[in-house]
Design a protein around this nucleic acid. Sequence first.
DNA 1: ATTAGCACTTGCTCTCGTTGAGTGCTAACC
DNA 2: GGTTAGCACTCAACGAGAGCAAGTGCTAAT
Lengths: 355, 355
Amino acid sequence: MPRPQVPESQNQIDERTQLVLQEIVNSYIETTEPVGSRTLSKQLATPISPATIRNIMSDLAELGFLTQAHTSAGRIPTDKAFRYYVDSLAVADSLTEELQSSIQKLSAKGVSQVEELLSNTTKILAKLTQFACLVTAPKTAVSRLQRIEFIKVSTSKILVILVSKSGVVRNKFIEMTEKISQDFLNSISAFLNEQFRNRSFQEIRNQILESMVEDKERYDRLLAQAVRLGKKAFEVSDPPELYMDGHLNLLMSDAFGDRNDLRGLMSTFERKGQIMEVLDNTMQADGVRIYIGVENTHEGLRDCTLVTANYRNENNVLGTLGVIGPIHMDYQRIIPVVDYTSKILSQAITRHSYD
Amino acid sequence: MPRPQVPESQNQIDERTQLVLQEIVNSYIETTEPVGSRTLSKQLATPISPATIRNIMSDLAELGFLTQAHTSAGRIPTDKAFRYYVDSLAVADSLTEELQSSIQKLSAKGVSQVEELLSNTTKILAKLTQFACLVTAPKTAVSRLQRIEFIKVSTSKILVILVSKSGVVRNKFIEMTEKISQDFLNSISAFLNEQFRNRSFQEIRNQILESMVEDKERYDRLLAQAVRLGKKAFEVSDPPELYMDGHLNLLMSDAFGDRNDLRGLMSTFERKGQIMEVLDNTMQADGVRIYIGVENTHEGLRDCTLVTANYRNENNVLGTLGVIGPIHMDYQRIIPVVDYTSKILSQAITRHSYD
DNA sequence: ATTAGCACTTGCTCTCGTTGAGTGCTAACC
DNA sequence: GGTTAGCACTCAACGAGAGCAAGTGCTAAT
């Protein structure tokens, strides 16, 4: 999702015009009301008369930075204006101590599970931003194996436990027709642990599949069973895991005027798979990414802004977190929050890793 | 939450009046509009003139079954009317084949985890009812131990795996300061399995606590460690588990007119603990329970109806499921759906149990 | 006891001025 | 030539009033 490249010439606007645009966006972010020339004139530090501002506004409208609901209404910044604002005008606030310490709480005392860490992250983000917040679980494909165990829970059922380096535990039941003793299962897990420890799940999958096409005659019973169980254990059957919180904030906030707007958005949230896809698509990039309105490839998000950042351990990018809010969100506040949260989460999850 | 006991005399209303009341409620459920005497007269099978109906309505209003928004508006059934309707008038529809088979899908092919079963249940209920749907995870206190295992994942961290008879798997990390070998952990889990298999978590907790106050001199190292680890493993630190789906349906449906109504309701949903409590309180009773509007002890649900039923295996009630919808829901449809779902879930979860 | 008839109530909708914020243009100004 | 004051124009929002429709309550007749 590369940022739309606009010819420089088109956006070549002089300093004062820039100032006016900045102030319009600021004002709109603050009030969510169309902003008029008179009001703006008063707010502006440099005194410019309403008439002049009208001229400037007219220019900006022509360049596609402003629209108006009807001829006699004030101007509303377009998505393009917000993009411009975010790119060149906004100076990211440094976070207050208070915000910082709120965010640090995500890995507070006694958080022993990665799942809890991620869920805390969404909760804290939701609280601080008052928007919908998302965190993807560490990608299974790049996860590295820390430990695999098989536990026989009944004659035909085996519980598989997969622990990844990043601290994620996954449980899965396998049905077996033939009888296998717990001792034998232990041998198998010992073998698999020996063989695959520290390898990524993706690698393991591939290698197992390769093994299967090799000449089976060469296998002893242990190896054969290990391959069979391993295949089932590492199958990618798991639904994409996504932690989500605060989508009700959007409902509360009447930042989205129409109830129908909200409906569309909410049903997007219900399709977690789609949201996952959107987040995954942003994962290549680095740092905080911002997708404003029409810039969103996913149709359901065209009336929102998505702000995302990755989290990682020392070796790999593990997942993405993000917030979804109105296009007129307070970027100066939100961007650093997302940024800092991603860093704190990275730290926390690195501490949780086993090395 | 016992059903409010109303003196018989107050509700002693003759057959025709009953019929009118029934029809008013029916009509209101269908249209969500105040119902007037003229309209009702036409709908009624037995021909009664509008004027007579007005008299009857006047009586019903006096008895507290009907209200009206203003003098010249039609009548609206009160919560009391719905209670009367549900208790004595509604004949539960038998479920269509279609509905039955939809519900049976909750335990469709390849559902290997109880968690998935429960989550499927909320999804199916949400789809069929278009309301908010809830399922509580099997109560840990009454769960019986099937298997406990300890896996050492790093020098200081131990992963505990608790498998209950009902098929629920729970993971938990324990930090250990002193070093314990995996072999020793295996001995401990063997011991605990031997000792506590089939006992309820509550019993186990108690017994472990008892053991701790006993003379420690008598312990050998194994026993001492087993008690220590066991205590941590069975600690009730887990957040109450609640599966929820379809609360967005309520948002979509405009059955709740005001957006503020919805906000209150939604923030109730955000406090899962409160919802849990409400559901737990209903668990003593048997069969389908219905709490209409003011009958709800929890304030946030006073504008809703809650319909709940338990699910169970052969031995115990395991948890509760329920739907929350508008007071004017279609009871004839919803009640059998909840009832049947609870039965199918009971069956499915019984099949998942290990015996 | 039931019903027809009628006066009355009340919310809803439509229309039509009025108001006010805001624009666009033109002409004057520095 | 850029900036500003002034003025005519536009258009949503608000409010009052008329007409309408649905529904009630009461009274008198059946």
